[in-house]
Design a binder for these strands. Structure first.
Lengths: 232, 232
DNA sequence: GCCTAATGCGAATATTTGTTCGCATTCAAT
DNA sequence: ATTGAATGCGAACAAATATTCGCATTAGGC
C-alpha cells in the first residue's frame, strides 16, 4: 500500500475499494477488473485509488488477504473443536463452515477464488495445509488406530486441494447430479477412509466422546433436513 | 475459425499458431498471450493470424480442443482395460497416464489448464465425468459388492474434480512433502474406499482376477519396464 | 509458363488500460 | 477563523492491444 490512510474517510475508502475489487472480479471476471471500473464501482476516482494502491495487483492482493483472514480464523475455530469429534464429523462441520463462508454475498469470495492461479492463492492453501497437518497429526497421536496413518502430509495435501477446488468448481458448474450435501458427505467419507481412527463404539481408551450423530448434521446455512444416507 | 485452410502451408500455419498459443499461455500466462506475441512465436504475422481466427478467444478454444482430444482418447483407452482390473489399479494406471500426458513438453498442457476458469475447461470435465460415471456404473454392476455404492455420480464428480485440480496445482506448488507417486497412491486408496468392490480374495462370482499389488505400482513416464499389472 | 484463387504480410486505426500530476476540497488542531 | 496536512479528483499521457485492409507473394491446375 502506497500511503497509509490516517483519517476515517480514507480508511473507509480503502475498504470500499477492496470490496469493489472483489465484486468486479466476482461478477465480471478478473480481466474486467480494471482500475477505472473498480474506482467507479467504489464511487471514487482513479486518482484516489492510486493514492493508496501503487499497482492494481496490490488491490488484488488486498482482496485475497481479506478472504484469507476469514478463512484461517474459521479453520482455526473448527480445529479447536476437533479433539472431541470423529474425523468424519470434523470434516463435515469444517466443510459446512468453509462452504458457507465462501458463499456469502452472492458467492463473492468463491467467484474470486476461480482465479487462484493469478492471485497467488497457493500460498493460502499452503498455510491451510500446514495448519491441518499439525492438527490432524496431534489428533491421530491421541487417537491411534490399529493401522497407523502413513504419509499424513500427502493425504492432507490431497484432501485440502480436493475440497477447495471442488467447492470452487461447484459454483462454475453446480452439476445437478451432485448436490452440496452429498459432496460434503462424500468428502467426510473420503477423509475417514484415508485417516483411520479408532471405531466409535470402542475407543481404545481415547477421550473420544460418543456423539449421537444427528441426522442432519450441524446446521449449515440453509440446509433442509433431507434424508441422509446413514453410514455404518 | 474464420476461413478454412485449403493448402498445406496454411494448415501447418494454423497448427503452429495453436501450438504457439499453448506455449505463450504456459510460459508467460494467459494475460500475456496476446495476438502479437502469439503470431511472433509462431513465426507468422498478425494479419495471417486473423485470417483463420476471428477473435483470439478462438485460438484459446483451439488449444483447449487439442488438449481435450488427447485426454479423452487416453481416458477411453484406459476405460477399455477397466473390466479386468480392480478399481484401485484402474485409478492408479489412469492417473499415471493422465499425468504423463499433461506433463509432456515441459508441462505445457498442465500449465495451460491453470486458467481453466477463462478457458471453459469445465465442459471438458463434464464430459470426462459422464464418461467415467457410465463406465464405473457398468463395472459396479458386474462386480457388485456387499454394500452397494450410493450416489455414484456425486462420487465421480468429486473424484474427477479432485484428481484434475490436484494435478494442476501440483505444478504450481510441487510440495516437497508430497511426491507424485504418493499422491497417485492416495487417490487410488480414496477411490477404492469410495467405490467398494468385492474383496479380492473372494470375488462373488465376478471375473476379477487376483492382482498381486506391486509395491511401486505401475511404471511412470520414463520408468523401466517394471513388473506391470497383467491384464487377464 | 500463365492465371486465378489462396495465402501471407505488416503498417495503420481505434480502443482500452495503467498511471501520473496539478489543483480543489476537507479535516483537525490551534 | 486560520492554517497546514491529508484527502480527493479527473483530465491528460503513454503504452499496449485487438482487429482491419490494401497489397505483395505463392501454389497448383491448365
Amino acid at each position: 500500500m502506497r500511503k497509509k490512510p490516517r483519517q476515517g474517510r480514507s480508511r473507509s475508502m480503502v475498504d470500499s475499494l477492496v470490496e469493489a475489487t472483489a465484486i468486479c472480479i466476482a461478477e465480471d471476471g478478473l480481466p474486467a477488473a480494471t482500475a477505472a471500473r473498480i474506482a467507479e464501482r467504489a464511487g471514487v476516482s482513479v486518482g484516489s485509488l492510486y493514492q493508496y494502491f501503487a499497482r492494481k495487483e496490490d488491490l488484488y492482493a488486498a482482496v485475497l488477504e481479506r478472504i484469507t483472514v476469514g478463512l484461517k480464523a474459521l479453520v482455526a475455530a473448527e480445529i479447536e473443536r476437533l479433539p472431541n469429534k470423529s474425523i468424519e464429523d470434523f470434516v463435515r462441520d469444517l466443510l459446512h463452515a468453509v462452504w458457507s463462508y465462501l458463499e456469502t454475498d452472492r458467492q463473492r469470495y468463491l467467484r474470486v477464488t476461480r482465479y487462484w492461479a493469478q492471485l497467488e492463492f497457493v500460498a493460502v492453501m499452503n498455510d491451510l495445509e500446514r495448519q491441518m497437518t499439525t492438527a490432524l497429526g496431534v489428533y491421530l497421536m491421541h487417537h491411534p488406530a490399529r493401522r497407523p496413518v502413513q504419509d499424513l502430509p500427502t493425504k492432507v495435501y490431497v484432501l485440502v486441494n480436493s475440497v477447495l477446488f471442488t467447492i470452487v468448481r461447484y459454483i462454475s458448474e453446480p452439476s445437478p447430479q451432485a448436490r452440496r450435501e452429498q459432496i460434503i458427505e462424500c468428502f467426510a467419507e473420503m477423509a475417514a477412509a484415508l485417516l483411520p481412527a479408532p471405531t466409535k463404539r470402542a475407543g481404545a481408551g481415547a477421550p473420544l466422546k460418543r456423539l449421537p450423530r444427528s441426522p442432519a448434521g450441524r446446521s449449515g446455512t440453509s440446509a433442509p433436513p433431507a434424508a441422509r444416507s446413514v453410514s455404518r
